[in-house]
């Protein structure tokens, strides 16, 4: 466990809790893409199938349970409890345009042609692009609430920190995970534009506005 990976996981947990906090306290899913949250649910379920078959550590299992349960809770809040506040008209990204390619790629590029490994690779590829509906929604609505931008910053930072972890592991342990690294770089690059807006606007106390 490198420091970067721990920082990455904590940033990930922060993001998930920030989102739950925002929806719960404002009793509103306004500005939040339900499709992104649905795909995150798929990401965690398909990645953590080994939750009951292989025990790595208490930390590992706890985080897996936390990620799965928090993402299910978030989807529940958006599509059921606060359904009336869900802004479906701006959440128009076609999920199948990312789910199908991720599945096809997982069938081609995986570590073993087994259900578990294909499911794991699918999860990794899907996670890389799962944020697209949310980023689309921010550009469509033209802005994002402050807490939503902090959520996105924490979420984008988690995989960026994992990249540092992978560099660290390659340097000290001499091996790396091509599928996770490739997808992790794509995932972090997709936040590029958002990070720019975040650092030039939100940090200076202004609202995140996507300039028309």
């Amino acid at each position: 466990m490198t420091l970067f990976r721990l920082a990455g996981d904590l940033s990930h947990v922060l993001a998930i809790l920030l989102l739950l906090y925002k929806i719960w306290t404002t009793k509103s899913a306004a500005g939040i893409s339900g499709k992104t949250q649905l795909m995150f649910c798929m990401v965690y379920v398909t990645r953590y199938l080994d939750l009951f078959t292989s025990f790595i550590s208490v930390y590992n299992s706890t985080m897996k349970v936390l990620f799965i349960s928090a993402s299910v809770a978030t989807v529940y809040l958006i599509y059921f409890k606060f359904k009336a506040t869900y802004d479906g008209n701006h959440d128009t990204f076609r999920m199948e345009f990312v789910i199908v390619p991720a599945l096809i790629l997982a069938l081609i590029w995986n570590y073993a042609f087994t259900f578990f490994e294909i499911s794991w690779a699918f999860s990794i590829f899907l996670e890389a692009v799962a944020i697209l509906p949310q980023l689309f929604m921010v550009t469509k609505t033209g802005e994002a609430e402050n807490i939503t931008s902090h959520y996105l910053f924490a979420l984008g930072s988690y995989r960026a920190l994992y990249i540092l972890n992978w560099i660290d592991r390659y340097y000290f342990e001499g091996h790396w995970d091509p599928i996770a690294v490739t997808a992790g770089i794509v995932q972090t690059v997709l936040y590029g534009d958002f990070f720019y807006l975040y650092f030039t606007r939100v940090i200076k106390g202004r609202k995140l506005q996507v300039l028309p």
């Binding site: 990976r5 080994d50 570590y111 794991w120 990794i124 342990e173 790396w176 996770a180």
Partner: peptide, 10 residues
């Protein structure tokens, strides 16, 4: 099959 490290990462 010595799987790469990814199975110990989240």
């Amino acid at each position: 099959l010595n799987l790469p490290s990814h199975h110990d990462e989240l």
